[in-house]
């Protein structure tokens, strides 16, 4: 069947609270898979389990045929899974460029002397660094971050910080990208751009995207599949049309506006 990314019987509790409750789903390679659900439904907890920040109580997470549940975040990153956070996790005193270069950490081969290039311009380290910079410049161009390039991230407006985090995740060259509410806090113009960039990332870079998003318009327009959860349980999963037609989803999202 599908062996790109599968979650089986995943459960995670906090004290008495069951945040994720025997959750199953599978994502196809190259697709955009969205997760919706009210606040407190367990969406972020799911991401924390996938990215190794939390250890699941039980269940399996398989990525490209390998069990990855219970691994540490740095090991998950080296498996090719990158993520962004609902509340940004960035190096706020570093520039956009430096943040993105840190995103390339796992690809840097020359260990200790990487970047000590002022002495020998043709060294392996110098060539490697140039290679990384080129990749990062490419991402900066893609996300239109040129003007933020050498600015400390803490001094940027919120919408741009979110883009820097997206860029940092891309710098890892992931096969699977987890986005936790990427458009939250963005202006509608920024959201529009983000919408196209996420499409570009999927289509041009071939990255599979697993996304938590509250903006239903965006979810309906770009997702291949949608999973709705509540109280850590699956409510419904299917194409955007199928999910939008589900009575609970209509009640939660469409009815209340």
């Amino acid at each position: 069947m599908n062996d790109f990314f599968t979650v089986t019987g995943l459960t995670r509790t906090f004290g008495g609270v069951v945040a994720i409750d025997a959750l199953d789903f599978a994502q196809k390679k190259g697709s955009i898979f969205s997760i919706i659900g009210p606040n407190g439904a367990g969406k972020t907890t799911l991401f924390n389990c996938i990215s190794g920040i939390y250890r699941p109580d039980s269940g399996e997470i398989c990525f490209q045929g390998r069990r990855i549940d219970g691994l540490k975040p740095d090991a998950i990153a080296r498996h090719g899974i990158a993520r962004t956070f609902q509340n940004l996790e960035l190096f706020f005193r570093m520039t956009t460029m430096e943040n993105l270069m840190l995103g390339r950490h796992i690809h840097m081969r020359t260990n200790i002397w990487h970047g000590l290039t002022m002495f020998h311009k043709n060294s392996t380290a110098a060539r490697e660094e140039a290679e990384h910079r080129e990749k990062v410049e490419h991402i900066i161009d893609l996300l239109d971050l040129q003007s933020a390039r050498d600015v400390p991230v803490g001094a940027l407006p919120y919408g741009r910080q979110k883009l820097v985090e997206l860029g940092r995740a891309l710098a890892l060259e992931p096969s699977l990208l987890l986005l936790d509410e990427p458009s939250a806090g963005m202006t509608s113009d920024e959201r529009q751009d983000l919408f196209f960039w996420i499409k570009d990332i999927q289509q041009e870079l071939g990255v599979s995207i697993l996304m938590i998003e509250h903006n239903m318009q965006m979810v309906m327009d770009i997702s291949d599949r949608v999973l709705a959860i509540d109280f850590g349980k699956k409510l419904v999963e299917g194409t955007p049309e199928e999910v939008a037609a589900h009575p609970e989803v209509i009640k939660a999202y469409l009815g209340e506006d």
Partner: peptide
């Protein structure tokens, strides 16, 4: 600066 961000970048904290 930020050990969560470091971890998520693949740094062995």
């Amino acid at each position: 600066m930020n050990s969560t961000a470091a971890r998520i970048n693949g740094i062995r904290v």
